[in-house]
Amino acid sequence: MIKKVFASMRRSPYQTMAAVLIMFISFFVAAVYFMSSLTAQRVLTELASRPQVVVFVRDEAKPEDVDRLKKTLSDSFKLKDLKYLSKDDALNRYKEQNKNDQLLLELVNAQILPASLEVSAVDGSELGKIYDLAIKDPAVEDAVYQKEEIKDLLIWVESIRASGLILVGVLLIESILVLLIVFALKITLRKDEIEVIRLVGGSSWQIRGPFIAEGVIYGLISGIFSFVLTYLFTVVWHISPIGVIPALASFSVPFTQSPVNVILWGVTQTMVAVLIGFIGSYLAVWRYLKN
């Protein structure tokens, strides 16, 4: 059967090339978009895991008030970190941040700066709730967090994810439709041969099998080549100036950190392509070889 499949591919090289190229481009673009989405997700996770809600404690608050507040927050949320900064700690940090500006250093002492709790959450989307709970506490003077920035980031990531999914869906449907057209043409071209095979005792599988196998081979070829190109793309990204930026370097993480990941990624991408090749050719055979 493999011989027949390759003979069929040779017999109509332009149709074969069109199908493989479309599938190859679809899978390459889908893979790159998927990895972009992964990068955006990683960037957000990194930002969201940094200390985000800063809770300023009233000067008159006692240590037990602070302990109670810490317990309330720890019990209510999954926190990544909860750090108490006393007035002296705050002054030390201020001094470190403004060590080159003598004027600013002279204006501030420990009494001016409030003690605070720096709260970071495992899930960045919970920061708003942490803020709401903390601000109600009588020991709290004020609380701040990068509300708008987090909201914007969440919207961006969701948009990238949604548009990525739509794009991947459209590309996969496009691949299936191209396969349908290509196999419809191939079936039409081989109509006489199919009829003879049927009349001399060819089974349904003998007629349909080679077309389905051809679709699977298209998937295999496009899957392998699109994976190789995606891999090269991430390698180039990693060594390019943009890849040096820590957050964006994570684009190539799945490939560069573990050979197992590379193999897994390659196998997954190829298998999905093979599956699409199978679905496309099967649908064509089902649609055009019904009788």
């Binding site: 006489d192 041969e193 009829e195 003879v196 009349l199 001399v200 005792g201």
Partner: peptide, 14 residues
Amino acid sequence: RRHLGIVFQDLKLL
């Protein structure tokens, strides 16, 4: 069909 040998009217040669 495999037990039949058929010579078709229009031959059906490819």
